[in-house]
């Protein structure tokens, strides 16, 4: 991610898969915008690796994104994502009580088939958050998903999120990406 190197190209999986992926992402936007986090966790496989490495100002592009064993804003498996979703669903979770108004935009997508039952989707995203009477936050970034395609609908098995900001301009992150 964010590198100069041209990644290896895999075949485009065709229009049926594109439609499935777009339907999944539309669904995800609806759930996140409505704060339906418990349902949102259902979009991930039980072995999900959900990670948002920190970004540092470095002299080279390769050095900007923290490595897998380094710090992240999220580094969750299914158990901890579920815990976060439960917490965010409680009215005593002040960071989303009163709730934020949120919009998600995920575009453009690049979809590649990497295994018989797995595809990789790379996308840009923008999450706009406003809460209380005037607070506003913008989160721009890049997302790379591995989707597993062997069930009735695709599920996210691996997600890497890279936010573009190095020092976040918000007092917290109460959104998922």
């Amino acid at each position: 991610m964010n590198g100069d190197r041209e990644p290896r190209r895999f075949p485009d999986p065709g229009p049926a898969v594109w439609a499935e992926v777009e339907a999944l992402y539309r669904r995800e936007c609806v759930l996140l915008q409505a704060g339906r986090y418990r349902e949102w966790v259902g979009l991930f496989t039980p072995d999900i690796s959900y990670r948002a490495p920190v970004v540092r100002v470095a002299d080279t592009r390769e050095g900007m994104v923290a490595a897998e064993e380094e710090l992240a804003y999220y580094d969750d498996d299914h158990e901890t994502l579920t815990l976060r979703a439960e917490k965010m669903s409680l009215t005593l979770s002040w960071t989303e009580f009163p709730p934020s108004r949120v919009r998600y935009f995920v575009w453009p997508l690049e979809i590649e088939r990497i295994e018989a039952t797995e595809i990789r989707v790379t996308s840009n995203f923008l999450a706009y958050q406003t809460r209380l009477d005037h607070r506003e936050h913008l989160f721009f970034g890049e997302r790379e998903d591995v989707l597993r395609m062997d069930g009735p609908s695709p599920l996210v098995a691996r997600r890497r999120i890279v936010l573009d900001r190095s020092r976040l301009a918000s007092e917290n992150i109460s959104l998922f990406f």
């Binding site: 710090l71 804003y73 918000s170 007092e171 917290n172 109460s174």
Partner: peptide
């Protein structure tokens, strides 16, 4: 590290509420 991130830092389940209230 994963436990720290889960609880503290900007997305931490504890620290996110601190930031909300301190502001």
């Amino acid at each position: 590290m994963r436990q720290y991130i889960l609880s503290f830092g900007p997305s931490g389940m504890f620290e996110q509420d601190d930031g909300e209230i301190w502001t």
